[in-house]
Amino acid sequence: MAEWDIRKLQILRTLREEGTVTATAEALRMTPSAVSQQLSNLARQLGVPLLEAHGRRVRLTSAARLVLRHAEAVFEQLERADAELAAYVRGEAGQVRVGAFSTAVPALVVPAVRALRESAPGVSVRVREAEAAEAYDLLAAGEVDLALSLAAHAPTARDPRFHVAPLLADPLDVALPRDHPLAGAAVLRLSDLAGESWIFGGSGPWADITRTACETAGFSPVQGHAASGWTAILAMVEAGMGVALVPRMAAVRGPSAVAMRELTEDRPVRHVVTAVRRGAQEAPPVRRVLDALRKARPAPG
Rank of each mutant, 00 (worst) to 15 (best):
A194Y: 06
L176N: 04
S197P: 07
A43V: 02
A2E: 15
Q38I: 07
A71H: 07
P284V: 03
A299N: 06
D137V: 15
E18P: 08
E72L: 11
E52H: 04
R44F: 08
I199G: 09
G94F: 05
A152G: 10
A283M: 13
L46S: 01
D179F: 02
A141Y: 06
L139Q: 07
A175K: 05
F75P: 01
S149W: 08
R13S: 14
P247E: 03
E265A: 13
A235I: 00
L12N: 06
G122T: 03
L138S: 12
R161L: 00
S102M: 09
A2P: 15
A34E: 08
T274I: 00
Y88K: 10
A235C: 12
T22C: 14
E79A: 14
S149P: 03
R128T: 13
P111S: 08
D179E: 14
P49C: 04
L139I: 02
R56L: 10
L15N: 08
M1F: 11
R278P: 02
R97I: 12
V286M: 10
V174F: 09
V258D: 07
D179V: 03
D208A: 12
A257D: 13
A283N: 14
V269C: 02
V98S: 06
R211V: 09
R117F: 04
E72C: 13
L46I: 07
S149T: 11
F162L: 05
D145F: 04
T274A: 07
L193C: 03
R294H: 10
Q77W: 15
G201L: 01
A147Y: 00
P111A: 04
E84H: 11
P171W: 05
G19N: 01
F219H: 01
E262Q: 13
D173Q: 12
G240W: 09
G279Q: 02
Q281I: 05
E3R: 14
A53C: 09
M241N: 15
G279D: 05
P171R: 00
E265S: 11
D208T: 13
L68N: 06
G142C: 02
R57A: 07
G204M: 01
A283I: 13
A104Y: 00
Q10L: 15
R7C: 11
G204D: 00
R158A: 14
C214R: 10
P166W: 07
R7M: 11
P205R: 08
E265T: 13
S203I: 03
T24F: 11
L148W: 03
C214I: 05
I199L: 06
V125L: 01
L290C: 05
E72W: 01
L188N: 04
I6Q: 15
G201A: 15
V74T: 09
E262F: 08
V123F: 00
S102N: 10
E72Q: 15
E79D: 13
R128E: 14
A296L: 07
A232M: 14
R189V: 02
